[in-house]
């Protein structure tokens, strides 16, 4: 049953009636309005949010560097993930969830009137930032997946990610441990990349932590002010932890010296997948 909540007035003292409300899409979207809104909320938590925790935790291992054979804890975790059965389907489900969350999110943002300049308070800033970071995160996640995972070359920035590469044949399903050097190479390409990642990841972290906080209200988990405040501390704690993971990953990737830290075989493997790395990396490419 669909009860339209708002009925324009044709009775009473009204001289002019409120314009007919605009719904994003009469039909399917309206009939399943509540369900879609709740699925939108849920998809941000599981699988997208939970994946972000795992992803940032894995990346934080880059801080520990690599041993003399090129192996590292980071590599170990990447190998573990790559050994997941039917990984491609897991990935497609994840991309689908991100697209679903982003698509509905963009639709739900149409027409809203942020007013933080008039009603200046912390909660209203949170509300506004949640929507700003949504856009930043959308662009960031797209570029991130397109360059590293789909191995697109964007603006001459070619930074494909492979877990392992064979030093002799360039075969990308085994061989040298390349997770750390390839990530380091991507980030050290230019300081702009570092800024892009910092802004992008921090936006994702804020959007996730704040989204978790508001989801608890939306679903009716935290009702009292005290409950909302206590849950707020927990979400803030999650945000701080994820920021720390990100910083650890950043330090790990930036302190990795491509010229001296790679083994000879890693260098040869890198030659196979990114032949231009010596000329391009690092810093000389800022122009």
């Amino acid at each position: 049953m669909c009860i339209r909540v708002y009925v324009p007035s044709h009775a009473g003292p009204a001289i002019v009636s409120q314009p007919e409300p605009k719904s994003p899409d009469i039909g399917f979207m309206d009939r399943h309005h509540f369900l879609l809104r709740r699925l939108h909320s849920l998809s941000g938590i599981v699988p997208v949010g939970v994946f972000v925790i795992m992803h940032l935790f894995t990346n934080a291992q880059m801080m520990w560097g690599q041993d003399e054979t090129g192996e590292s804890t980071f590599q170990h975790e990447v190998d573990f993930i790559h050994a997941t059965p039917a990984l491609l389907f897991v990935e497609i489900a994840l991309w689908g969830a991100i697209a679903f969350h982003a698509g509905l999110g963009v639709l739900y943002m149409t027409g809203i009137v942020p007013n933080v300049m008039k009603y200046r308070n912390l909660d209203n800033w949170r509300y506004t930032l949640q929507r700003v970071t949504a856009w930043v995160a959308l662009v960031f996640i797209f570029v991130h997946i397109a360059t590293l995972r789909w191995r697109w070359s964007m603006f001459g920035w070619f930074t494909p990610f492979y877990a392992r590469v064979d030093a002799e044949t360039g075969w990308t399903h085994g061989g040298e441990a390349m997770a750390l050097p390839l990530t380091a190479y991507a980030l050290q390409y230019s300081w702009l990349v570092v800024v892009f990642y910092a802004v992008g990841v921090l936006s994702v972290v804020f959007h996730w932590a704040n989204g978790l906080w508001t989801a608890a209200i939306t679903w009716g988990v935290t009702i009292s002010k005290g409950a909302q405040r206590r849950w707020g501390f927990m979400c803030a704690g999650l945000g701080v932890a994820l920021t720390a993971f990100f910083l650890a990953a950043m330090v790990g990737a930036l302190k990795y010296d491509l010229d001296s830290d790679m083994t000879e075989r890693q260098q040869k493997a890198l030659d196979k997948v990114v032949p231009t790395w010596r000329g391009d990396a690092p810093d000389s490419s800022n122009e």
Partner: peptide
């Protein structure tokens, strides 16, 4: 609750919490 679940109902709240302050 059915009215609240319809388009324009409670699910459209964005938790800005301006309402409670004003």
């Amino acid at each position: 609750l059915e009215a609240m679940e319809a388009p324009g109902g409670i699910a459209d709240c964005g938790n800005a919490q301006n309402c409670v302050k004003v």
